[in-house]
Design a protein around this nucleic acid. Structure first.
Lengths: 349, 349
DNA sequence: GAGGGTTCCGCAAGCGCTTCCGGATCGATC
DNA sequence: GATCGATCCGGAAGCGCTTGCGGAACCCTC
């Protein structure tokens, strides 16, 4: 609970009235001068500007907004994580897209809703304090109840890095990305392909990458073997752990599709520690084109993370400008061949 | 430029007057009921609350703030990067610290000031729109001019993950961290120790890690060889590149101290590609205890990134509560022995 | 040099909310 | 049954700013 006496936040800031007095004009003229209205004489404007500068005057955004003045828009940026590369990188793009060429820019309110509690708190609370003009939901799917909450709020919503049916969104086709990865392994001749899927489906909605894995195998005529699909915690340790489990199988896979590059990195480590060579003994492919993928020479399916942010930011801007809800965009993914995939050893050349 | 007609952001939101009318009370009573003032009868409060709920009433934070009501505090979070693990992780901690046990929490305004332009824009602009009650500057040092700007603004400042003299800050002792890393190499018997320092000194202020490298060598009685200090871009590719340069020397180092784990990771890659073994042929040590360090079994100096955020968040809270400026805190770093350091080959056992 | 435009500025009415202050209502008290 | 406190509530004055409207002052024009 924070109490604000007088002029919010400022030490002892001058008010518009002070500026007006010093400049020898009325309050209204001072206001108009500062807002660059055309109907104030250049000389007067100068005088007001000088007075404002001299007094270190700064407008009260609250009063300004309240009085119906134009003002910098506020948008909520809602993310479940921040220490994961994907989210940070996307937010960097988002900033670019939101800034656009607008000198005023947009204020971004950051909401970290990692756990269920935080998430609930956010959706309960946001509407209760009509604080934003738009919201960007990054990397997770809002459920129906949350959706209603947001609509009630009346703000524009854009979803980035994860689908969210009713709202404009910018994503990649996770199913296709998964297919690109698994099909690559299939084409190399692999038949026994494991998958390291992630728990935490809340992060990305229904796991289309896992679906892609299944359908790719069906299409390739490979008999289904549920043992080969293991669910792990997100991150390299999870991947390492999952790979161990896969290696413990009676017939381990000759290739592994990891939900993400970080998981793939963990898998590679386990393989190396187990004395297996990558890709000679086991192939590994991930998704994201995380910096670590380049570092480890990891074959992966790249997705344009930064660009998803940029596009989402731009969508918000058009929404804010009162434009039509922009159509959702699906950005392309691309297989990046590196050194962790090769034909299986037993395969005919 | 966004114009707001009527009630900001809301679709067709009801006003407090509507609530009051529906509840059959006056405006003032309605306000008091919603703000849990004690002097409104329980029954009346119920009625008002019901009316508010029925009308989906949400207060206008602008009006509320303007009228001098208590309100959720706003703090600016200023970061130069977001795709780097350090910053994301620190911000996760910051969120925890800022939230504290306060159910109302704190609104975080995110400012990404990666490039010089963005940074200037931020410092020019923030004071011009007195929008926050406090600011957290993460991972870089504000210069004198910027500092004045902030003070003029009259908001409390806290610096995290990077020292900033006049403000309360929470950091690690970068000099000590550097010493821990380099001394470790020295103790192992290394005499020819290279360093991969980073460009971009703006990120972390004067580079104390590099200073530590120099003094550690002096203390060890190792003659100075400027060739062994190379500056690289931040990140793994930079580290890889720098390591190549080091390997191109007439007498390459037997150990390398990298400014960060990401740079160290790049260095390790180059070494492996060059057919050199780590740590048998060359030792490598980094700083941060980035997740990649564990993955690569990289010896490093750990710093409590998340905790720096938490502590900074708490500092802001005490400042916001009107408390004394809390003393700066220096959190401990710790050498984490892993598999990339060993005595040099020629060293006596 | 009077009529008609322009240009520029001040008055005052709010934006939606909070809170001071005084008044009404009611039960308890002597 | 009149008096005194509590207890609750309403009236009204702003918070600091924007903007519609009308009024001065000014420059043209015929």
């Amino acid at each position: 609970m924070v109490h604000h006496g007088g002029r919010t936040g400022a030490a002892g800031g001058a008010g518009l009235d002070d500026v007006a007095r010093l400049a020898g004009v009325s309050l209204s003229t001072a206001s108009r001068a500062l807002n660059n209205h055309p109907q104030v004489a250049a000389a007067t404007r100068e005088r007001v500007l000088a007075a404002a500068a001299g007094l270190d005057y700064v407008v009260s955004p609250d009063a300004s907004r309240l009085a119906g003045g134009s003002s910098r828009a506020r948008v909520a940026v809602v993310v479940p994580h921040l220490s994961r590369w994907f989210f940070g990188r996307l937010l960097e793009g988002l900033e670019v897209g939101l800034r656009g060429d607008d000198p005023r820019g947009v204020d971004q309110l950051l909401f970290l809703v990692g756990d269920v509690a935080g998430r609930r708190a956010f959706f309960e609370d946001l509407p209760a304090r009509r604080r934003v003009d738009a919201a960007v939901v990054v990397g997770f799917e809002v459920d129906e109840a949350e959706q209603r909450r947001l609509e009630l709020l009346g703000v524009s919503i854009v979803s980035a890095g994860g689908p969210s049916e009713p709202f404009p969104s910018v994503t990649v086709d996770d199913h296709r990305a998964g297919r690109q990865a698994v099909d690559h392994l299939v084409h190399l001749g692999h038949r026994r392909i494991g998958m390291l899927a992630t728990l935490d489906p809340a992060d990305r909605g229904p796991d289309r990458r896992t679906q892609a894995y299944r359908t790719a195998l069906v299409d390739a005529g490979v008999p289904d073997d549920p043992e080969l699909l293991v669910r792990v915690a997100f991150g390299a340790p999870g991947g390492a752990d999952g790979m161990s489990r896969l290696l413990g199988l009676r017939r381990p896979p000759t290739a592994v599709f990891a939900y993400s590059d970080e998981i793939a990195a963990g898998a590679v480590r386990t393989l190396r520690r187990a004395g297996l060579r990558v890709p000679e003994d086991v192939s590994v492919v991930g998704i994201d084109d995380h910096p670590i993928a380049e570092l480890l020479d990891l074959t992966t399916v790249a997705q344009p993370v930064h660009e998803q942010g940029v596009v989402a930011g731009r969508m918000v801007r058009t929404l804010l400008a009162g434009g039509e809800p922009p159509p959702s965009r699906v950005l392309p993914t691309q297989l990046v061949l590196r050194g962790t995939t090769a034909p299986p050893r037993e395969a005919a050349p």
